[in-house]
Design a protein around this nucleic acid. Sequence first.
DNA 1: TCACCTCATGTTAGCGCTAACATGAAACAA
DNA 2: TTGTTTCATGTTAGCGCTAACATGAGGTGA
Lengths: 336, 336
Amino acid sequence: MSSELTAPGTGPAGAAPTLSEVAKRAGVSSITVSRVVRMPDLVAPETRARVERAMRDLGYVPNLVAGALASARTNSVGVLVPTIANSIFADTVQGLSDKLEPLGFSVILAQSRYDAAREDRMLAALLSRRPEAIIMVGSPATEEGSRLLRNARIPIVETWDLPANPIDAVAGFDNYKAGVAVAKHLVAQGRKQLAFIGGDDPRGTRRWFGFRDEALASGLAEPRRLILDRKDSGSVAAHARLPGVDAVFAANDAHAIGFMSGLRKAGLLRDGPASAQPVAVIGLGDLEMGQLISPTLSTISVHGDAIGRTAATLTLERGGERRVDLGFELVLRDSG
Amino acid sequence: MSSELTAPGTGPAGAAPTLSEVAKRAGVSSITVSRVVRMPDLVAPETRARVERAMRDLGYVPNLVAGALASARTNSVGVLVPTIANSIFADTVQGLSDKLEPLGFSVILAQSRYDAAREDRMLAALLSRRPEAIIMVGSPATEEGSRLLRNARIPIVETWDLPANPIDAVAGFDNYKAGVAVAKHLVAQGRKQLAFIGGDDPRGTRRWFGFRDEALASGLAEPRRLILDRKDSGSVAAHARLPGVDAVFAANDAHAIGFMSGLRKAGLLRDGPASAQPVAVIGLGDLEMGQLISPTLSTISVHGDAIGRTAATLTLERGGERRVDLGFELVLRDSG
DNA sequence: TCACCTCATGTTAGCGCTAACATGAAACAA
DNA sequence: TTGTTTCATGTTAGCGCTAACATGAGGTGA
């Protein structure tokens, strides 16, 4: 234990050592130390060894804050998601961070909680850290947010959607088409009374429009739409609010599974195939869980991690195609 | 579209405006602009209005990189988790970020992927950004990681566990006791052949020890232990590898649900209460999903978001109790 | 011999901001 | 009047690093 009072560690005394302290100890100039850290090949082996020794002795940890200011490169990207808990967006964050971390980029994470004002605040907060790119789920909710991003002059990747007029780059899929695909499938199955349950966020709403338009185009009555709070276990009770419905598209798998749980209580769930289900249920997201429950969940599968990795790539390469449609897949199992 | 070639935005031309450009435009010194941003009360209303006007005109976004260097405060915290996708740790990240973001702190997120070398690299990367605290799941896997953290002289919060010799602060629960509690319950239920399925990470292993020790202390044979890869859907097939077992503790709910899915295929799952189950299953984490499936999942409930919020608090207040046991709860439903 | 490389290292200036200390005007008390 | 306080604003220096440009030693070719 050292005699310093500085809590909580017990390492080298006093403030964190700087480049020039290392330089002094190694008997070189600070730029040489900087080179040992960043471009070791440019330094003679003996000098390098001496510097490395000094760094180890002092427990030197480079200060990237200072480095970033001097070089105008922060090696960081800002990531904005509605929410990270219990959310498929976690896959996207994982995907992009797996791609970016090995390259020396750090991820600065912010959550908007589906709140436009908070989104704007978080965007401003992110930008004030001068990230080299911003990756966000969806598009800015306000004109102000949009302006901030445009003025930042860095790559901006919008994900989980395919906006018509993106700020810069896009990695997502067509939520409208996903709704269409589900409606088509249910119609082909002979379902008549469709309903949609989910949030009224932009992407959920686009799914709803696709779903509704296709149902109408097929000559069905307009589907019911039940807007649920996030984290609403209300999906469990949703069935009671949808009398007569024989097919449901849930905007995400969690809602779908909750809805199925309600169906089970009502005696309307079978362990057999889709054709045996009094009420068909299709989710979106393809949670692993969907394959483990009974009946297994039919769902729109979306590759959240691929969205993240693609977004990371779009962040790094400024040329080339700036709009990547990663598509989706209707995965049919036993629920509908 | 402006005439600038700078992609991708079309905002004010050229590089991002600086404090002193705003100052020049408003006819004040730069420190006054700085005050308008950080301590507006110290600036006369008219001056403030003039400066705010200039900031808006120029689209000024403060540069926190420079500010951090000058003030030696980055207003950021480093967060290290094993993984964020499909993971209960996302709750913790959400909890701490909900607490820290309103205070102006940013979250720098890194993932170790349960890899000690990567963990050390990520810790070094985090520290080089000079966060004002580090919050991590578990404890450093290596001596090197531990040293780095001790030398950093910032609050360090270890979570999801209660290490005997923490570096600084702790917000978690006793994984050993969780294992004990599950074993006790299963023994009381009259189960004889226990088994544990899950990973061999430090926390999973502590759960296993508690589970095993209690089983042995109750006079049962040593439980089987099946080590599964993460993301192993192997949990589905686990039952086949555990002949004769009548009670299983899964280190997390995902494994528990997968295992139940295997039981169902084997005809060993009932829709009735725990007493009717040929094989009792207890999970850990209390995923919402566990209440939606049938039979409902008995589980050790842990408040991931409370862990995150508590960790955030420990980060901000350096005095007071540095060890918070958030406990756990054995939630009994129908699976065991 | 000289011009001209290459290589290893150094010098200088400055990134954009803030801490700490100054300044000067106005207000007020004795 | 003079000193003292308060308030609004300014000046100066420097945070720790890196870009850009020296410098000087040693080698190379004609």
